[in-house]
């Protein structure tokens, strides 16, 4: 798992990544020094959980992706089967390219989580 995250960190525009369980617990992380993975996983789980609730109420199905953007960067969260892969984006990251490049990583994480 750590190897997958380290490779993902090498992708341009990625400023760190984290795998979290559906109940908001960090499972593996490759975040920059000083980042609090527990706090980040908990905050991400809250946003994902409310997103899933809203998706259910609007009959939109399961959440595939959550992204949140600001001037200083953003976060991209991809569904990874039994968990989620969260990617911290650097400012100015190419979001479209990152989404394309990150999907295979999410699939690999999903495979690991089902083993």
């Amino acid at each position: 798992m750590q190897e997958i995250l380290d490779k993902l960190n090498a992708v341009r525009g990625v400023g760190g990544c984290l795998v979290l369980s559906r109940d908001g617990l960090p499972m593996a992380s490759a975040l920059r020094q000083g980042a609090d993975e527990n706090a980040l996983a908990a905050a991400l789980a809250t946003a994902i959980d409310h997103g899933q609730t809203l998706g259910n109420r609007l009959d939109l199905g399961a959440v595939k992706m959550v992204q949140s953007l600001s001037v200083q960067g953003g976060v991209l969260v991809l569904n990874a089967g039994n968990g989620f892969l969260a990617i911290v984006m650097d400012p100015g990251a190419n979001l479209a390219l990152l989404q394309i490049e990150a999907r295979p990583f999410a699939e690999r994480v999903a495979q690991r989580l089902t083993l």
Binding site: A35, D36, V66, S68, S70
Partner: peptide
């Protein structure tokens, strides 16, 4: 999430689900 990462407040978010 952005506060934990030390980023400024988000100005856009997207929740993409299977059917919308």
């Amino acid at each position: 999430v952005h506060s934990v990462l030390g980023q400024d407040q988000p100005n856009c978010w997207v929740v993409e689900a299977e059917r919308g």
